[in-house]
């Protein structure tokens, strides 16, 4: 099957709606199809990858650990928009440490999060062939 550049655009906070959780399920399947996968976290989507998520008070399963597993599925291009963080009073320190292991470099751990400016994010979006938004 052909390989296409897929981008999954995440603009919503987790738990308030099912979009973040069900978006992750699509991302994992796309990896199984060996597609060129990128994720974009903009606007409230940045809350999906904050660290220290604690769902004990809301009766929902905490699925934030799934983002940490993405590297094992070779999903390692997680573009995070700086302006979206700044607008929300956040910095990269508020985000989970998401990494992948590079098979070609003796399994060296590398960061999956790629911090980009708004205009750089626009450039990345413009390169995609299939954009699915959640």
């Amino acid at each position: 099957m052909a390989t296409k550049k897929f981008m999954f655009v995440n603009r919503k906070a987790p738990y308030g709606t099912a979009y973040a959780l069900e978006s992750l399920e699509v991302v994992l399947i796309s990896a199984a199809f060996e597609q060129d996968v990128s994720l974009a976290f903009i606007d409230d989507g940045v809350y999906q990858i904050t660290k220290g998520q604690d769902t004990t008070g809301i009766g929902q399963k905490n699925f934030s650990n799934t983002y940490k597993a993405l590297g094992d599925y070779e999903v390692n291009k997680l573009y995070v928009e700086k302006e979206s963080l700044e607008e929300r009073g956040l910095t990269q320190d508020d985000l989970m440490d998401l990494v992948w292991e590079d098979e070609d470099e003796d399994w060296t751990e590398k960061p999956s999060i790629i911090m980009v400016s708004r205009s750089e994010m626009a450039d990345v979006m413009a390169e995609q062939e299939v954009t699915l938004s959640f």
Binding site: R11, D43, R118, M121, A122, D123, M125
Partner: peptide, 12 residues
């Protein structure tokens, strides 16, 4: 919602 503004901020 901010979606429209966000669109304008990213369209080329």
């Amino acid at each position: 919602k901010v979606a429209f503004r966000s669109c304008l901020n990213h369209a080329k």
